[in-house]
Design a protein around this nucleic acid. Structure first.
Lengths: 206, 206
DNA sequence: GTCTATACTTAGATAGAC
DNA sequence: GTCTATCTAAGTATAGAC
């Protein structure tokens, strides 16, 4: 504010700061209530300056989803490792490992991205696709593949994998949409819920 | 359009038509995406004419919630009758009776109102209050009172009523928010879910 | 990259004739 | 009650100086 020449040292990550502020505000107030001026104010620049970093307000939302995908890619468990694990470890343990978490400093902000997508998905195609892809299909396929493998190996008793996996996805979706509302699901209830579901997968003892 | 004098005969319910169109569009595209011009177009008037019926766009939303409350008041089961029923009928049957339904021609539109409230409640105080009041508190109190009565009468085994009623409310909320999405809950699943919950209430056989 | 200034568009709302 | 015309405010976005 006072010395502009000093600013150049700190502006390394204006783009990052814009994305983070946008995530927080979109998740809190909704995409439409938040103007580009609001976002600009939050990062102490003028709204015109946003356009040095993003082509449009819409582009900010796209970048938010891209960021999520990028971060998700880094923490997704390795399928081959889990295949190995499936050969010896208890099925319950294998399934637990499919629950991926972000780096602790990223977790909250990534949860907020899911919340934005959950709300906007009602009226926005891209948000709907992001939600389906990242929150439904991907984790579902992941779990389904492991269950199939364990079934092949004779490590679990016969199970309707499709039905199981739909139950699981809906539980995750409910949890996501409740985030940052008056009545969010607690970590404890989350664990209880997934545990209960995982117990439907019966080990053969083999 | 051609003969204006004829219009006066049909304009009996412009206000009603505005509300209904607004409900459909708000639930489909979200409150912010729908402009007063959109609503006006849908009922074939100019947007300025809306203001003969409503003070503001916000007032339309208020009227929508008021309409829901009014309709709900007409179909809510009579608590005293249910108290009577609780003395003789099986607990399961009593609980089933607390599920209220609107007149068939109103049901879909009222479901849409809940959807609007569920989405807007994230960012709008009044929507949040409507949702809590009509979708959470009221049905919960209703069921809780009946359970208390049946407990007093010794017709059901001891039960954590508060916990039960929270489970029930959350199930209803999930169902409501999924309405008009890619993945709405089916009537069958709805019945299955409530049945399963109601089975947690064990009759004493008295 | 950020600023000021400004263009363009759309939205909500009002005034006044009919 | 509905219309035309219009106002005002706000939002997205661009141009061009620094």
């Amino acid at each position: 504010m006072k010395d502009t020449h000093d600013g150049s040292r700190k502006k390394v990550n204006t783009k990052q700061k814009i994305i983070e502020s946008a995530i927080i505000m979109f998740s809190e107030y909704g995409y439409y209530r938040v103007s580009t001026r609001d976002i600009a104010n939050a990062v102490h620049i003028k709204s015109a300056s946003l356009y040095s970093h993003f082509a449009s307000k819409d582009d900010i939302l796209t970048s938010i989803y891209d960021l999520y995908k990028e971060k998700m890619g880094k923490v997704l468990p390795d399928l081959d490792e889990l295949y190995k694990l499936a050969e010896t470890a208890p099925p319950f343990e294998v399934l637990t490992k499919t629950n991926f978490f972000f780096e602790p400093e990223d977790q909250e902000i990534m949860d907020r991205v899911v919340t934005i997508a959950a709300v906007e998905s009602r009226t926005d195609k891209r948000s709907e696709e992001f939600l389906k892809e990242c929150i439904f299909s991907l984790p579902i396929n992941f779990t389904a593949k492991l269950l199939e493998r364990m079934l092949e190996l004779g490590r679990i008793e016969p199970l309707d994998i499709d039905a199981f996996v739909v139950l699981l996805a809906n539980f995750c979706f409910s949890a996501a949409i409740r985030n940052f509302t008056v009545d969010p699901i607690t970590m404890e209830d989350w664990m209880k819920g997934t545990s209960l579901l995982y117990q439907m997968v019966k080990p053969t003892g083999k």
